[in-house]
Structures are given as structure tokens and as C-alpha cells.
Design a protein around this nucleic acid. Structure first.
Length: 551
RNA sequence: GGCCCGUUGGUGAAGUGGUUCAACACACAUGCCUUUCACGCAUGCAUUCAUGGGUUCAAAUCCCGUACGGGUCACCA
């Protein structure tokens, strides 16, 4: 009896060989330096920040080099799968404008010639590779029960030995072919393990794209490559898939670095070239005075939905991810404000080796800047789209007054340094609500410095009757406010007022504030002249009247 | 416990042996500008690169130890 007999017993219906697969999935014909990258999540529903960063980097690297970025679904652990998990992932990527060139689109649809892109559909491919290993005596069935494995572990712990299935602990490694054959024939449960050719005393060096050179002992663990359900483990699927899909660069979380010796060994056993690896440190979160990994479970900001709900533009999230991804990006962008991320050349060597702290404040700042450079129409479209989902009242209002709203968004926008009032689509309402009569009902007025109702009435009355004129240009408008100021015994010159405040009842600032508050109820607004231009004569008069009455 | 990685200001970080070695950005503080708020501008914010040794004429940068943080050691990915 030979290894071949054993292999045939375990995998009786394997039609294709490794060589066949090599032909079916040939080397990709891409330009020199083109990278083939992938995002390979489990279908657990949604993509969190860390994975998004990894997929963002992968897709950017592929795009920069005219390569291929694909999506592969890693569903070899069926317990993890969530209903519509694939759709959730595809959706998140789509929402975040990370385009895939190939890969799964849903359970039934996909794109590209290197599929299937869902691991559970690749079973026979894995089996062909495993069968090959068994034939060559490089893999064997293991009959150890979980209980027995647990006993081994406890013994190893007790004797302070290295933990794992290796050397003299790997009892099934030495089972005779005949015995294995018969036990399988008798229906005994088993898994397949790699017969590791590694030596723990020897070292291997891996050059990680972000961590640099890392030295490990060789892997000598007889790792499981096929589980009792017939599906491969992650390690083995990684080998087969990334080889057959011709992946050149694997970007993943650094929880995988300790598996590197296993992965390198797997590639060696088949004589394949391993891909280049980039292991990303996790995104951290400050909690008290300790840092911890940003958690999908505990931290709402780890989910993409958090940002769509908040109305942070996805471009801002991209910008933020890029500043985390490449440490030289921020400066580049600062000097190339007119360019987009697409013009920036991503570099694996510029990824920080230590985990960065997630900084929402910085994200918001980026968002604020980003929004400030949009056209008013773009702001409008975005707010409309956002409000449709999250703020019905706002949606109706701005739909009804489209031109008017765009005018509001235009205030102090088209200048060298636009205002940065808006940090997200959801925050805009608090900046513009007073422009809509529908919302301008039960307002309260806080006139700041001037509190005497008669004085306020007097200011307002005098202004509206004597000085206000709709057609005034800005200079005239302000000169008239200055005239009003002087007429009432206030100082129209701020410098002068600051030098001798006791000589006046107040300043032009105080008068302006009264008018501003009367019209908007807020003492913090953009340029009052612009606001009044948009509001127009009739409504200004109404509002001033309303303010006077409420004194 | 074994193996591996990391540690520069409140934050993201630049900088891998020596021409400002502590950039730049966010945040913060103060001042200026100013009809409010923002914007903008100016200034300030690590005598020091977790820590102790060592190599060197010279180290944040190289080596060793220690501390702290993280990862991993599944028929999970």
C-alpha cells in the first residue's frame, strides 16, 4: 500500500491536478510592476475601519500600478457567516467607493476569470492540492480527538514545553499507511495535517513591507490544513487562493505576522513564490490612559455606517485613511490642494509600523476643509442625499427651496479661503436653520451687550425706517450702519472705541449684533450683508417687526 | 510561559550616524485682524526622542538588557 492509495481513498473523485489548475489560472498578463491585490474578509456582515484601511490600501496599490484588485470571500468557517454577509461587504465597499476589478458580488454573481471567489465553492481545488500533498507524503490524516489534543496541551504547559502539535507530540504523523487507510475505511473521523518539514532550531527571515525584516524559527507545527468538514483552514486556503489568483501583494492585519512561518513553508512545499506581505498595525483607540484596538463590538466609530449617518463625506474618510496609510500623504496633499488622492503615489514603505490612534477630531477637520472647497451645488446635492435618509424635515425644506439653499451655501464660499463652518452633512442644519421661516418660530433673542428693550426697539426701528435699503451695495450698507451707530451715540470706529470705551454707549459691533440677532436670532452667523441679501426686504422687515414685538 | 512586533510633544507623525536632530499637520494657549462667529496671520507648546548600558570623534538613528504596550500559540479567520 502506498501514499497514493491513501490519497485516493480520501479524495476519490479528484479530476484535476495542480498542473491543470496552473493552466486554468495562468500567470496574469500585466505590465511590469503591476500589483495584484485583494481584500479577503469573512462574510460577517460589515466592513470595519481596520479592514477598510487594508482594502483601501490594496485597491490603491493596484490602481497606481494598473494592476488588479479583487474581493474574495473567506467563508471556510461556516459558523461565522451572517445572513447577507457578502452583500453587506459589497455594499460597504461600494458606499466607500472602493471599486473591485474582480471578485464576488453576491452569492451567485461574480466578476473575473480567476474564480470562484468564494472559498466554500473552491473545495475541489483545495482537495486537489491536499491530495497532492498526501501522495507526496507531506500531509497525513490525524485521528486525535479534541480531548486528546487538550491533554497534550496541558502536558506541555505543565512541563513548560512549547505548545503545539509537533515532533514527538505529533502522534498521528507516524501512523502507518495501512493503519490510516483502515481507520478511515472504518469511518473514523479525521482531519488532514501538514507533515511539516521545518526545524525549530533553524531561522527564516521574512521581509515584511511595513515591519521590515523579521526573523522567526522555522515552523515545525503539523498544522491542520483540512478540517473535518472537508474545508481547508485559513492558512491552506491562503496558499491555494493567493497563488492561483496570482496575488502579488497581501495587505492584512498584523495578527497574521506570527503565521508567516507557516505560510512561507506552505508556499515552499509546493515550490511556489509567496506574495509580498504588508502587515498593518491595528488602528487604536484611546480609552482613559490606555490604548486598545478599535473594536467592532465596542466602538461605533469602527463601523462605516457611523460616518454615513453622521454625514462625513466619504472623500474625507478616504483622505483620513490615506493620512494614516502613508505618512507622507498629509504633507503632499497640503502642497497639492488641487489634486486628488488618485494623483498621489502610494508607497508600502511609508506605512507606519506602529498602530496609530484613531483621531475623530482630525477626521472632522479634514472633512471641514474638504467641504469648504466644494461648490455650493455639490454641497446641496450631498446634503439632500444625506437628509433624504436621515432628516426628513430638512430634506423637504431644501427640496422646496433649492436655489435659495444653494445661495445660502454660497455665502463666503467662493474666496481664497472659504469659510469652514460645515463639518458634516448632519451638522449643517445647526448653521442654517434660521434661514427658513418654517423653522424660525419660537426663537429667543439674546442681544448680548445691549439689554434694554427700549434701546433695542429704538435701534431696530431707526434702522429699518431710516437706513435700510435693499439695493445698497455692501459698503453703503455698512456705512449706513455706521451712521446709525453714531446717531445713537455709539462709536462707529472700533479702534477708537477700544481706546476710549468710556466715551461711548457702545460700538458698531454692539449695534450690528442687535440687528444680526433680530434677523437670525443667532449672534454667530456668516456675513450679515450676505444673509440679508438672501432673505430679501420683505422677510427682513417681518423679522425685525417680530423681534420688536417680542421685546 | 515560548515566539514576534512596537515605543519621538495632547494626537497623527518627519527624521534611520554628523549641513537647525527634533520638520509638518491637528488640537490647545495668547495676540493681531475684525460688525458677530469663523477664516486668516503671528507667537508659544518635546533642552529631547520609553529606560539603563554599550559602540563611535559623533546616535532619536547601530548593538545589548529592562519596562510598558500589542499580536500569536484553534478542526477562527
Amino acid at each position: 500500500m502506498t501514499q497514493k492509495d491513501l490519497a485516493d481513498l480520501i479524495f476519490p473523485n479528484i479530476a484535476k491536478t495542480i498542473d491543470d489548475y496552473e493552466k486554468i489560472y495562468p500567470e496574469r498578463k500585466l505590465a511590469e510592476g503591476a500589483m495584484v491585490t485583494r481584500f479577503a474578509p469573512s462574510p460577517t456582515g460589515f466592513v470595519h475601519m481596520g479592514s477598510l484601511l487594508a482594502s483601501f490600501i490594496s485597491s490603491k496599490a493596484a490602481k497606481d500600478t494598473n494592476g488588479v484588485f479583487y474581493l474574495r470571500i473567506e467563508d471556510t468557517d461556516q459558523k461565522r457567516e451572517v445572513e447577507n454577509g457578502i452583500e453587506g461587504i459589497v455594499n460597504d465597499l461600494k458606499n466607500f467607493k472602493i471599486d473591485i476589478d474582480e471578485g464576488a458580488l453576491s452569492r451567485t454573481e461574480s466578476l473575473g476569470n480567476y474564480g470562484p471567489y468564494i472559498q466554500s465553492e473552491r473545495k475541489e481545488i483545495y482537495h486537489a492540492f491536499i491530495k497532492n500533498l498526501i501522495e507526496r507524503g507531506l500531509a497525513y490524516p490525524c485521528f486525535c480527538s479534541e480531548k486528546h489534543l487538550e491533554e497534550i496541551r496541558q502536558m506541555q504547559e505543565a512541563t513548560k514545553s512549547r505548545i503545539g502539535y509537533y515532533g514527538r507530540y505529533a502522534v498521528c504523523r507516524n501512523i502507518k499507511i495501512e493503519e490510516a487507510y483502515n481507520r478511515i475505511k472504518n469511518g473514523e473521523k479525521y482531519i488532514i495535517r501538514l507533515k511539516s518539514p521545518g526545524d525549530f532550531e533553524k531561522k527564516i527571515i521574512v521581509n515584511d513591507l511595513v515591519k521590515g525584516k523579521i526573523e522567526f524559527p522555522e515552523n515545525d507545527l503539523d498544522i491542520v490544513i483540512m478540517k473535518s468538514d472537508g474545508l481547508p483552514t485559513y492558512h491552506f486556503a491562503h496558499l491555494v487562493d493567493d497563488h492561483l489568483m496570482r496575488t502579488t501583494h497581501v495587505t492584512r492585519g498584523d495578527e497574521w505576522v506570527s503565521s508567516l512561518p507557516i505560510h512561507i513553508q506552505l508556499f515552499q512545499v509546493f515550490g511556489f513564490n509567496p506574495p509580498k506581505y504588508a502587515h498593518l498595525s491595528p488602528i487604536m483607540k484611546q480609552e482613559g490612559d490606555t490604548k486598545r484596538k478599535l473594536s467592532k463590538r465596542k466602538d461605533p466609530e469602527a463601523a462605516m455606517s457611523y460616518y454615513t449617518k453622521l454625514g462625513i463625506p466619504i472623500q474625507a474618510v478616504h483622505l483620513y485613511l490615506m493620512t494614516i496609510a502613508n505618512t507622507n500623504f498629509e504633507q503632499w496633499y497640503d502642497q497639492n490642494k488641487d489634486k486628488s488622492i488618485d494623483d498621489f503615489k502610494f508607497d508600502f514603505r511609508k506605512i507606519s509600523a506602529s498602530g496609530s490612534l484613531f483621531d475623530l477630531e482630525k477626521l472632522i477637520n479634514i472633512s471641514r476643509n474638504y467641504i469648504s472647497y466644494l461648490k455650493a451645488e455639490e454641497v446641496y446635492d450631498n446634503v439632500l442625499y444625506w437628509a433624504k435618509e436621515y432628516d426628513k424635515q430638512l430634506y423637504e425644506l431644501i427640496s422646496k427651496y433649492k436655489e435659495y439653499t444653494i445661495n445660502i451655501f454660497s455665502i463666503e464660499r467662493y474666496q481664497k479661503k472659504p469659510r469652514k463652518d460645515y463639518e458634516s452633512w448632519s451638522s449643517i442644519k445647526k448653521n442654517i436653520w434660521y434661514m427658513y421661516d418654517e423653522l424660525f418660530n419660537d426663537v429667543t433673542y439674546n442681544y448680548q451687550k445691549i439689554v434694554d428693550p427700549d434701546e433695542i426697539k429704538n435701534i431696530l426701528n431707526t434702522y429699518i425706517e431710516k437706513y435700510y435699503n435693499e439695493t445698497d451695495d455692501k459698503d453703503t450698507w455698512f456705512n449706513k450702519i455706521k451712521q446709525l451707530t453714531e446717531e445713537l451715540g455709539y462709536s462707529s470706529n472700533m479702534k477708537e472705541y477700544k481706546e476710549n470705551p468710556e466715551k461711548y454707549k457702545g460700538s458698531v459691533a454692539d449695534i450690528s449684533t442687535v440687528i444680526r440677532v433680530a434677523i437670525t436670532s443667532s449672534n454667530m452667523t456668516p456675513d450679515l450683508y450676505e444673509i440679508m441679501k438672501i432673505l430679501k426686504e420683505q422677510r427682513i422687515k417681518e423679522r425685525i417687526k417680530k423681534a420688536i414685538i417680542s421685546c
